[in-house]
Write a protein that binds this DNA or RNA. Structure first.
Lengths: 150, 150
DNA sequence: TTTACTGCAAAGGGTTTGCAACATG
DNA sequence: CATGTTGCAAACCCTTTGCAGTAAA
């Protein structure tokens, strides 16, 4: 069984747990996210999922997010981007273009993750906050914008 | 001379360099940001700077950002927050409440910064991107939301 | 006295929602 | 057939902009 089939099984299961159905539209959204190199905007989703209504894209991505299948994020510009939940793709971080907003996934060395985990622990004990995630973005300029800007 | 006076002198200088004036409204905005514990929303700015028009807040913060005095960021919710530019406050990172969106500043150990710098360098050389900043956020729940949620 | 800045109100753009029709269990 | 889902269009909210009046160099 291919990894994508596993993905659909997991998505189906998580939606049913919420009393939701895993419809063709939702399946198409998961396929689009699984095929992308990094978090994608609604505009990109609509371009890739032909015939899908904008409102359905927003609504279904919200349903998928509630079910823990999808993660929504906002990076540089003020438009949201969506990716598969981290437990489906593995922990990773982002490389963000400050010019056009495009986002690529990057892996981070284990030693750095350990330092961040230590920071999270010491911050939680030094404050009254609870800390349960972290987010590390590298900001720069993507190849396309470098070419366009020069 | 107090640190706040230095801040106003620097702001004045950077605005003039852009052909802009350092007006009472802009001075008030800098005072609000200097007095806050972390990045603040427009709503918070308006509450603190009495009588300031909303459009003036947005416009002046944009002018201050262009001049390199202010930094605009978007974290958890979809509302922008503003803080003084990093060269005025020192390099720091953020502790973000996933529930209400409030943001606190945190310092990070030098060793972690060095690991992040190394990641930035290796990422730049492994891709065609240029990398010039980074952003590390810890995500959790602030004391107020913990109290409200229990 | 020229140029920048202000407040108001209207417009803009991404996102959400009401509703009637449709599809699925 | 009962409930969840869809697409359309209108509403929503944060943010930006046009404009006429005001203030600063």
């Amino acid at each position: 069984m291919a990894a994508v089939d596993d993905l659909h099984l997991t998505a189906d299961e998580r939606l049913r747990r919420d009393g939701q159905r895993y419809t063709a539209n939702r399946r198409a959204l998961v396929d689009v996210l699984a095929a992308s190199e990094g978090p994608v905007t609604i505009a990109e989703v609509l371009a890739a999922a032909d015939g899908l209504a904008q409102s359905s894209a927003y609504r279904n991505l919200a349903v998928l997010e509630d079910a823990g299948v999808v993660h929504r994020l906002v990076t540089a510009d003020d438009t949201a981007r969506y990716e598969l939940a981290e437990d489906l793709t593995g922990h990773h971080h982002h490389l963000v273009c400050a010019s056009c907003g495009v986002v690529a996934d990057i892996e981070v060395p284990e030693v750095l993750e350990r330092h961040i985990a230590a920071l999270a622990a010491s911050t939680a004990s030094a404050t009254r906050w609870s800390v349960d995630h972290h987010r590390l973005d590298l900001l720069g300029t993507c190849p396309a914008c470098q070419a366009a800007g020069s």
